[in-house]
Nucleic acid binder design. Structure first.
Lengths: 342, 342
DNA sequence: CTGAAAGCGCTTACAG
DNA sequence: CTGAAAGCGCTTACAG
């Protein structure tokens, strides 16, 4: 089945391609009569402009790229949902790539998106990312670019983030308020800014409350998994049996910790209180229900797309765009895992 | 920053655009010397072919579309993961659209993908889909098309599915084997084939075991949510206090059911055994751990893409492609929620 | 081995 | 109000 083209329509109506094109784009200099006949035939033949040709002419594709560390992840999939909804509302399609927390893949995918000539790129860094060179390429090519959640601070782009340090401080303060005095931290990997910030928030909260920081109480995840939660829970119990509180980098790890303690019959929160981060759906259905830090996800996606859209529009009109950073609010969610009764 | 084009390279080297293009595409009829000088300059200028132009010429974009009911969903996000990985391996990008279980959105999105002229489409139907007209358009346009999980049986396309009826039968048989005699079913909405098939499997299992089917024991979800699980658990308890087993359309609903029973102190599985479907991650961390039907997800994505790729290649070579259906194996996962000890 | 030319299907500045 | 023409940046059949 051959696709209808402007040429055919022009031929059938006995007018020029130019006029057909103008009629379709509501140029004012086309007679009502001509426009009508064009619209009718277009309707009848179910004509759709060839997007490849339009892209080539207009140098834009109404398509953006999204690079995300992991799709099977409550937080990230919610961000994707927000992005997809907002993009669709504004007539944009989204190409999604999963970096799988790998720097190598991330590099490759940035190259793919640049070659594809997407109109803009949204990105959350992989855990392995430890320098900015591959990202600078996006800036150098003047491709509209917004980072969210896991960002590189030094890249001059718009960003949508939370205040990880503050949120972590509040989480640890919450444990302290509940009576915890010896608090372990299962932190994220070395590279990601948010793992660093949450760790710093942990330290600051201790300091503020006159509790001595002990680096032995800090355990570092490599892959931030449920399994690591189990492993570290075991280790904490063996190495520091008097720990009375744990702040985990994210809910998935916290759930692993709870699973191990449940299994061993360690009373939570009375012996050890636990708080996670991100408010995954899972947290409210496990037992005990997990206290955590609520972090906007869908909204983060929506706002990231809006910032990108603004930048794309500025670029189109050759205006200067000043990158902006939006910081979203977090909130402590108190549930059973930190509700000490002693 | 202007992008490098073939024209510029040709000009700098004092040769024709044709020759540059051929050198880059490893045509045999280019001298080694010329090819080398081209490759060197290309490297130096970091030339990347303009994909818009390539798309227009070759009439393909190495991009496929994926329409999925819901991204924030353990099963679907795992399928996406499988698709993305396989697509990337084969040099394809994936545009993802979320139909949000809405027929209207689904229609719109099919139109978007057709207009975008993607090379192929992967799709899982929304719950609202009750006829095939919008999907037939894909077939009519001869766009390579593969359905997975939630499919329309009558559309002549490749499919990747499980045997929902058989899997459901096994799940209910499992409850019966554990001693359940009055088994309720919290089913999915009316339209989706897999909800229908699981319901039929439920019925067949009862029949096979000489248990009378009672339509009052079947509860129908509208949105297949955690909250509906809670609601129906309550209703089941009120309306049929002697129910001793529940088969839920999916784990999310089953988890809602467990939450309600836990809250009310109903002993699971001893008073009521529960089995879900899909083996979401969550199922193994809640208490009691949820018995369920394991359903391949990532693999489903991988295979769906492979079938699509095959069809896309056939189309390119003007070969006939015979749609195929791949049926993946499921497996009962026995956990605490069905482990009666009486 | 090299290149002129046609063409993919649009958009738009320009002339009339 | 209409249309001829140029051009976006490639690919490829064809001629030499």
């Amino acid at each position: 089945m051959k696709e209808t083209t402007l040429k055919e329509i022009a031929k059938i109506l006995g007018i020029s391609i130019t006029t057909v094109s103008k009629a379709l784009k509501n140029y004012p200099d086309v007679s009502e009569k001509t426009r009508k006949s064009v619209l009718e035939l277009v309707e009848k033949l179910n004509y759709r402009p060839n997007s490849f040709a339009v892209n080539l002419r207009t140098k834009e594709s109404k398509t953006i790229g999204l690079i995300i560390p992991e799709v099977v992840h409550h937080f990230f999939s919610s961000v994707i949902k927000g992005i997809l909804a907002e993009a669709e509302k504004n007539g944009y399609l989204v190409i999604i790539l999963q970096s799988n927390e790998s720097l190598e893949l991330e590099k490759k995918q940035i190259a793919l998106l640049i070659n594809k000539r997407v109109d803009g790129i949204l990105m959350s860094l992989s855990n392995e990312s430890n320098n900015d060179d591959h990202i600078k390429e996006i800036i150098r090519k003047k491709i509209p670019f917004v980072q969210f959640d896991k960002i590189s601070k030094l890249i001059p782009s718009s960003k949508v983030i939370i205040n990880d340090q503050k949120a972590a401080m509040e989480a640890v303060q919450h444990l302290i308020d509940k009576g915890c005095r010896k608090i372990a931290h299962v932190r994220g990997p070395e590279n990601p800014q948010n793992a660093i910030d949450r760790f710093l928030g942990y330290k600051k909260a201790l300091e503020k409350n006159g509790i001595l920081y002990d680096s032995k109480l800090v355990y570092t995840c490599r892959n931030v998994t449920f399994e690591e939660g189990i492993t570290f829970a075991k280790q904490i119990l063996e190495e520091h049996s008097d720990v009375d509180g744990i702040f985990a980098i994210t809910d998935l790890v916290a759930v692993g910790i709870l699973a191990y303690f449940n299994d061993k019959g360690i009373p939570i929160p009375n012996q050890i209180a636990v708080i996670g981060f991100s408010n995954w759906f899972m947290s409210q259905v496990i037992s005990p229900k997990l206290s955590t830090v609520d972090q906007p996800s869908c909204e983060m996606g929506t706002l990231a797309f809006r910032l990108l859209l603004e930048e794309m529009l500025c670029k189109k009109e050759n205006k200067v765009f000043e990158p902006r950073t939006i910081e979203l609010k977090t909130k402590i969610i108190e549930r059973e895992s930190s509700l000490k009764t002693n």
